[in-house]
Amino acid sequence: MTQTMRKTDQELKTAVTEELHYTPNVDASGVEVQVDGGTVTLSGEVNSLPERLAAKHAAMRVGGVTNVTNKTAVRALLPTEINDQTLAHAVGEALAWTVDVPANAVKADVRDQRVTLTGRVTWDYQRHAATRAVTYLKGVKLVSNEILLESAVPTAGTKAAAEAAIRRSAELNPANITIGLDGSELTLHGSVGSWSQLRAAERAAWSAAGVTSVRNELHIAS
């Protein structure tokens, strides 16, 4: 049986840097990488919000990484290129044309090319859809999602449904994950082997009917 050795911080830094350079939609020359105890910190400047997100996802893909702090900043466009009024119009159009964002449920405020989303929706995927709708617009530097989640669905079968979803998953080991439910808040406990598994468990939790909050207390096992 072969034992997998834990990577040192220097090895992780090298691996993350290589992954950033390998990722075609990231200009790695503008991103700095630091690693401390398996936690990766990214800093520097990138050209767009999607590039900023892609850099974080690249770091998360590297085996041995236990956490990623993304301190990269999006370079601001000149006022002559785009202004808040023009961007606010584009944001409103994008939300209106996105099929999985409920009509008139989400409002957006744009200041200094930063978008703040507010409103109320029923499902978490609708909140993500609103963020996704505006993230890829030219000029957006940051999206703050303050949309509230409310559901009138009874939670009597919520815990059992979430547990069944975990068992069905090809990515997850249900023996290592336990679920707690307090009102409409679902909590995940236990361990997973990677960031992708952690996110898979979280997606399964959010998909349970009646859930308005998820506390992900899973840790990534070395």
Rank of each mutant, 00 (worst) to 15 (best):
K107V: 02
R127T: 14
A103P: 06
H128L: 11
Q113V: 04
V110R: 02
R132L: 08
T131P: 06
A105R: 00
T118R: 07
V101S: 03
V134F: 10
A105S: 13
P102L: 15
H128P: 06
A103Y: 10
L117R: 02
L117F: 00
R114H: 15
G119H: 00
A130Y: 02
V110T: 04
K107N: 06
V101G: 04
G119R: 02
A133S: 11
T122Y: 10
T122D: 14
T118N: 03
H128G: 14
T116M: 09
V110C: 02
R132N: 11
V110Y: 05
T116D: 01
V134P: 09
V101K: 00
Q126V: 07
R120M: 11
T131Q: 15
W123Y: 13
R127M: 10
H128F: 12
Q126E: 15
D124I: 08
V121T: 08
L117I: 01
Q113L: 12
T131W: 05
V121I: 15
V115C: 05
R120L: 14
R127K: 14
P102D: 09
A105M: 00
D109G: 04
A133P: 03
T116N: 01
G119Y: 03
V115G: 01
W123I: 14
R114G: 10
R111S: 07
Y125V: 14
R132Q: 13
A108R: 03
P102E: 02
A105G: 03
R127H: 10
V121K: 08
D124K: 13
D124A: 14
T116G: 08
V110E: 01
W123A: 15
V106N: 04
V101M: 12
T122M: 10
T131C: 09
P102H: 14
R114C: 15
A103Q: 13
A133I: 07
R120H: 15
R111G: 07
A108E: 03
V115I: 12
L117G: 03
T116W: 00
A130R: 06
R120K: 13
R114A: 12
R114W: 11
V110H: 06
K107T: 07
A105N: 02
N104V: 04
A129D: 00
A103W: 09
R120W: 12
P102I: 02
A130Q: 03
V134Q: 08
